[in-house]
């Protein structure tokens, strides 16, 4: 709306000492998190970890019990000056069934101070962006689960907010629609801060700039994807010969190797990023070891490891 944007150095969201309980159950425990003004931030964690509660507190759906959340320089997430500057796609909200989607979007735009032709144009454009242009004059009751998700995304970005909160926006979408939403998020991330929660870590890895891992109500890791995954360097090594168990046993003895998995011609190795020789040193020593064993690597690929980091941080990694 009319309030000034925060200074470039000011974070878009600053969370400090956030605690929250439902009855006697503590669902958030001392969350501290600072989020930048632009880019895409992923919020990951197992079911019931507190992601939606954190979203709801930032969006002002829940009342703050303990701690502080400042949003775009405002000391409260429900400050009137924030109205219209934060777009939210809640996980389980549904549109009214007795009014057409078009009229509901126009109503939301009217609350943002956008009327007439401009509002109509925006409603049509945003529905096109999420691939729902044919449903504009229908009631929300006919939408499938995936279409409802896309409509949720559409309403959250319709007024071009400075912060967009998307709670599992691609859950239940088919691959084509999920890709459409991802590319929309990339576009949004250039101009605004997009916070997205998802269980699809492979999807997030390619999408996000920063990540926060929440587990049992605590923010167990946060920062750039690079920072969070630094300790989990996974490499896939393809060999010309079949891997033998003896080779694996020998490899596990190497101090820079944390974990080895294998199948036929492929080794999957997790290296310790804090190895004294650094990651490059650890990798070159592994090369030397394999050549020494008479199995020179045919190809080495740096594998995805957000999932690995997540599993380690949440204690769900049973394989190591």
């Amino acid at each position: 709306m009319n309030s000034p944007a925060p200074k470039a150095t000011e974070p878009a969201i600053h969370i400090e000492g956030l605690n929250h309980s439902f009855g006697t159950k503590r669902v958030l425990k001392g969350i501290d998190w600072v989020l930048p003004t632009k880019g895409i931030v992923g919020l990951v964690g197992p079911n019931g970890a507190g992601k939606t509660t954190l979203f709801s507190l930032i969006a002002g759906f829940l009342n703050l019990q303990e701690g502080k959340i400042s949003v775009l320089g405002q000391s409260s997430p429900v400050a009137p000056a924030l109205m219209g500057r934060v777009g939210v796609m809640p996980q389980d909200a549904i549109f009214a069934r007795d009014i057409t989607i078009f009229d509901q979007l126009l109503f939301l735009l009217r609350l943002e101070g956008i009327h007439g032709d401009e509002a109509e144009q925006r409603a049509k454009t945003v529905m096109q962006q999420v691939g729902l242009e044919t449903e504009l004059y229908r009631g929300a009751a006919v939408l499938s689960h995936g279409m409802g998700k896309r409509l949720g995304v559409a309403q959250s970005i319709i007024a071009k907010p400075e912060i967009v909160l998307l709670d599992e926006p691609t859950a239940g979408l088919d691959p084509a629609n999920a890709r459409q939403i991802r590319s929309l998020m990339r576009e949004l991330g250039k101009e605004a801060l997009v916070i997205v929660s998802s269980h699809n870590l492979l999807e997030l890895q390619d999408l996000i700039d920063e990540v926060g891992v929440i587990f049992d109500g605590e923010l167990v890791a946060s920062g750039s994807v690079e920072e969070v995954t630094r300790r989990e360097r996974r490499f896939e090594i393809l060999l010309d010969t079949i891997v033998t168990p003896e080779l694996v046993v020998e490899m596990k003895k190497l101090s820079q190797v944390q974990k080895v998995e294998y199948e036929e011609y492929q080794l999957t190795v997790d290296l310790d990023a804090e190895y004294e020789g650094g990651l490059n040193g650890a990798l070159s020593q592994l090369y030397s070891f394999l050549i020494q064993q008479g199995v020179p690597p045919h190809e080495v690929r740096e594998g995805a490891s957000l999932e690995q980091a997540y599993l380690r941080l949440t204690g769900e990694d049973q394989s190591s």
């Binding site: 007795d98 009014i99 009631g139 929300a140 009751a141 006919v142």
Partner: peptide
Amino acid sequence: MAASDRPGGL
């Protein structure tokens, strides 16, 4: 999909 999006008023 849900059965109908007909408004209750109708």
